[in-house]
Simulated scan of single mutants.
Amino acid sequence: MRNFISTHATESSLLAVMIVICAFLSFATDNFFSLGNTFDLLNTSAVNIIFAVGLLVVLIAGGIDISFAVGASVVQYVTAIALGWIGGGSWLSGILIAGSIGILLGAINAFLIHRFRIISIVATISTFNIYFGLLMFFTKGVSIYDLPDWLTDKVVLFEHEMPDGTWIEITLPVLVMVICVVATWILITRTTIGRQLYAFGDNPEGARRFGINIGAMQFIAFGWLGLMAGIGGLVQAHYAQEVVPNAFYGRELDVLAAVVLGGARLGGGKGSVLGCVLGVLLISITQNGLNLMGVSPFAFKMIIGAIILVAITLSNTRIDKLVPVLRGEGQTR
């Protein structure tokens, strides 16, 4: 246990913070500490976790992408139209179409960054606006409600009736989320590509001299995020039973904050799937608890900003350096 805490300091800190917040909210609200609310949190957090593990790969590779959420909206709409053209399709055809479009959008970002040497955040700000502008121009903001039955039918993997007559359940988005989390964990921890992504993100010039294909790393990282965005978009359409063009607008910053909160370094070369998942869950728990307490959503944004600032500060400061400062021993005499 001590070895785990020392090697996973960020994850351990997040777990501790989550326990404290959950303990507080269990006393401050009536419904937070219940199986029903816990299962609801898991179901509603599934899409954000799918997005987060995709973004994690980009951050590990030293990049940043804020266009993936709008890209997921594009994937939703184009996939819905394509499924109508082919007569409805199935989950297999839906995932293939959504995943392919997502990878294509990610590859466009990678191409701009690699070919024209554009800073990733600048390139993805551009594609963010291009994707969203084109989507709203062609759709005129009109939602799609006529979706195939297989996409809108609720798939319950587990359900149980509670003594008070309410039901708790785990739905399909949770299963898809688990598959995406495991696949990402395998990619970055159990493959040569994963080790190269970490090396490239930590020291791009050193990785280049070592013979790592820089272009391939960027296409893999942004392509993987595109794949996760495509899958996440399809899962959201299943969960909401509709396709809304601006459904994901603004989601990118929440997911980015969660991934950074989970220990991913904006400069690249650092990050873990466990920390990423815990970061998303911590933000979801905080938001859910504040909603149950009747706190304004504007206050939630403020509180989340403070949590992220403290978490980033602590994750980048060695405890043995922080303690003397708190005691006043680090002041210049």
Score class of each variant (00 low, 15 high):
73 S>A: 15
114 H>Y: 14
35 L>S: 06
11 E>W: 04
289 G>H: 11
126 S>F: 14
15 L>G: 14
274 L>D: 00
95 I>H: 02
215 G>P: 10
14 L>C: 06
152 T>C: 09
173 P>A: 12
121 I>A: 05
7 T>H: 12
268 G>Q: 11
85 W>V: 07
32 F>H: 11
161 E>A: 13
230 G>D: 05
299 A>L: 15
61 A>N: 13
277 V>M: 02
138 F>C: 09
105 L>A: 07
226 G>P: 05
129 N>W: 08
151 L>A: 14
178 V>G: 03
272 S>E: 12
125 I>N: 07
95 I>N: 00
232 G>L: 04
194 G>R: 10
186 I>G: 08
81 I>H: 13
46 A>W: 01
207 A>N: 12
288 N>I: 03
219 F>M: 08
333 R>F: 03
221 A>R: 10
134 L>Y: 07
110 A>R: 01
75 V>F: 06
225 L>I: 01
302 M>W: 06
207 A>R: 13
223 G>Y: 03
270 K>S: 10
151 L>C: 11
143 S>C: 06
193 I>T: 15
259 V>P: 01
98 A>Q: 07
329 E>M: 15
22 C>N: 13
53 V>N: 01
191 T>N: 11
204 P>V: 06
164 D>I: 05
153 D>N: 12
145 Y>E: 14
72 A>E: 04
33 F>G: 04
248 F>D: 07
183 A>R: 02
171 T>D: 09
92 L>S: 14
285 I>Y: 03
163 P>N: 12
87 G>D: 08
216 A>N: 04
139 T>P: 09
305 G>H: 13
29 T>L: 11
281 L>C: 03
304 I>L: 13
280 V>E: 08
66 I>V: 15
271 G>W: 04
233 G>N: 09
179 I>C: 08
84 G>E: 13
229 A>P: 02
333 R>I: 02
60 I>C: 05
234 L>H: 00
133 G>P: 06
248 F>P: 01
210 F>L: 14
207 A>V: 07
301 K>C: 08
110 A>I: 02
61 A>F: 00
24 F>S: 09
143 S>L: 12
244 V>A: 11
42 L>K: 11
146 D>V: 02
264 A>E: 06
143 S>T: 06
6 S>K: 15
206 G>I: 03
296 S>P: 04
80 A>Q: 10
